[in-house]
Design a protein around this nucleic acid. Structure first.
Length: 475
RNA sequence: UCCUCCUUAGCUCAGCCGGUUAGAGCACAUGACUGUUAAUCAUGGGGUCCAAGGUUCAAGUCCUUGAGGGGGAGCCA
């Protein structure tokens, strides 16, 4: 490679060395100043062209969105907006961009408009920043687990198991949808299907993750997950990425310790490595907040992230949380839409009250009633609750859900029967409780929710390159 | 899926109680200017007013239905 990255050039000393840079035009001012960006940083490098020495035919083709290769001297900038700039000696057009048709203008676009231009929106400052932060968080996650002796386990994406009941599933089939083979009773005959049975896209790698933990000790998965729910919210996707660590010999407290340290560590990594991008997102958000009344304004992004990194998460039991809610002002004044009593599944408004009003910091709730939680969670001695934990964050609600797993074979089978979970599809899961079972725990974290929190983006569709939501799979 | 708001130029929006040729800023084109920072100034082109149906002498404006989008809720990560 003979050309240099913009990020590299902006950090270099301007000693009039000749450099080549390649990138896309953001703006072209005064027929003289090109702001060029190559994605290596949020900042552009300024290319100064001598319009008397440069062929007019070339200058005409320097339009917003065009791709250029520029060679010139890296010098100290005369202007005040930047430290260095390139005095162009040659400008080559690698790719034209018809300015009448290129949809991105050098101005602020709405996020809704950019969602319709998902193929081009990475070329904007905002999405460039988001995608770089997304990468940094992804890398930090792998590094976190690798540093602590976890193995990355690749759990299947196509699965026959649907027992967890984590949501509606997408069917995977090679059968002819118009004329599928039928059984004698008239049902679709999945014995004729590719796998010889009915299969779906995974909703969670957890059950397979447990198999890994009971052999390798510490594992984590980081892969795509699919939910065919008709959810239309700024916090849900049909295709999203989930991180699911699973740890042998961990109890629920070890699990909480890990979850808290994990989230703080990856956020700290982003603060360190993505300072420029986060500063941009911080400023962007601040301007947006200015349009809101004072009372509704949230903590500025960088302060919010620093606060999470610096402070211990509040830990309390579900029962204690219900007590707080029962004594709360909105409950007494009947402001909650959903009534509060022991045994309910906490609603968004309840979680938000605890996190944003009462504690004003991330909260970890444990000891949920067994009837509102999954079959595989470890039953507590009280007979009423399970060793579940949810980490609740301001703004986005539940970011992590986890539990210590039920490791007692008989208790697990009894619970499955009570909750009408069929055993036949899960014989392999049950065998782990027959052959060398042990206490173990784990949690799941929605990657996009983490990216949402760190970037401050309000809509989850803006933190993944190509969002999959109901009625939307254009790109 | 439910509640609610929205859909007018390439983008962001205004358009009053239904009334005669539907506007602005930005973008784009042409020209001027040339150390700019979303450059500036002048001029210009650009409209299936989301779709279908209805009410009316007259509909961008009112009504019905549908589509798409935002926000809230449910489900959840």
């Amino acid at each position: 490679m003979t050309h240099r990255k913009v990020a590299e050039l902006l950090a270099a000393a301007p000693t009039s060395q000749t450099v080549t840079v390649k990138g896309w035009v953001r703006t072209f001012r005064s027929n003289r100043f090109i702001a060029l960006n190559d994605g290596s940083t949020i900042h552009n490098v300024q290319v100064v062209v001598d319009f008397e020495q440069t062929p007019e035919a070339v200058l005409k083709r320097v339009t917003t969105g065009a791709c250029l290769a520029v060679t010139g001297k890296l010098v100290a900038s005369v202007g005040s907006g930047q430290a260095v700039e390139i005095q162009a000696e040659s400008v080559a057009i690698l790719g034209d961009s018809d300015p009448e048709k290129f949809p991105l203008q050098p101005k602020k676009h709405s996020l809704e408009f950019l969602r319709e231009k998902a193929h081009l929106r990475p070329r904007t400052n905002t999405f460039g920043a988001i995608l770089r932060v997304r990468h940094a968080l992804s890398f930090a996650i792998h590094q976190y687990f690798n540093d602590r002796g976890f193995y990355n386990l690749h759990t299947p994406i196509i699965t026959a198991s649907d027992a967890e009941g984590a949501g509606q599933m997408f069917r995977v089939t090679t059968l002819d949808p118009v004329n599928p083979p039928r059984t004698e009773a008239g049902a679709v005959d999945y014995r004729e299907d590719f796998f010889g049975r009915s299969t779906n896209l995974t909703v969670s790698g957890q059950l397979e993750g447990e198999l890994g933990a009971l052999a390798l000790g510490l594992i984590y998965t980081f892969g795509p997950t699919f939910r065919a729910e008709n959810s239309n919210t700024p916090r849900h996707l049909a295709e999203f990425w989930m991180i699911e660590p699973e740890m042998a010999f961990y109890d629920i407290h070890d699990n909480m310790d890990l979850a808290e340290d994990f989230v703080k560590t990856v956020i700290r990594y982003a603060l360190d490595r993505c300072a420029d991008d986060l500063a941009f997102l911080h400023k962007r958000l601040e301007e947006e907040e200015k349009t809101k009344p004072q009372a509704e304004r949230a903590l500025p992004l960088l302060e919010k992230l620093q606060f999470v990194v610096d402070n211990a998460f509040e830990r309390l039991t579900y029962t204690e949380a219900i007590d707080i809610l029962l004594k709360s002002k909105p409950h007494k004044e009947k402001k909650f839409q959903f009534p509060v009593e022991w045994g309910i599944d906490l609603q968004s408004e309840h979680e938000r009250y605890l996190v944003e009003k009462h504690f004003k910091k991330p909260v970890i709730l444990t000891g949920y009633p067994k009837d509102i939680k999954a079959f595989y969670m470890k039953q507590n001695p009280d007979g009423k609750t399970v060793a579940a934990m949810d980490v609740l964050f301001p703004g986005i609600g539940e970011i992590i859900g986890g539990s210590q797993r039920e490791d007692d074979y008989d208790k697990l089978r009894t619970r499955m029967a009570e909750m009408h979970v069929p055993e036949d599809g899960l014989w392999w899961y049950l065998e782990t409780r027959q052959f060398g079972t042990c206490p173990h725990a784990g949690f799941g974290l929605g990657f996009e929710r983490l990216v949402q929190f760190v970037t401050g983006m309000g809509n989850i569709r803006d933190v993944i390159p190509f969002p999959r939501t109901p009625k939307n799979a254009e790109f």
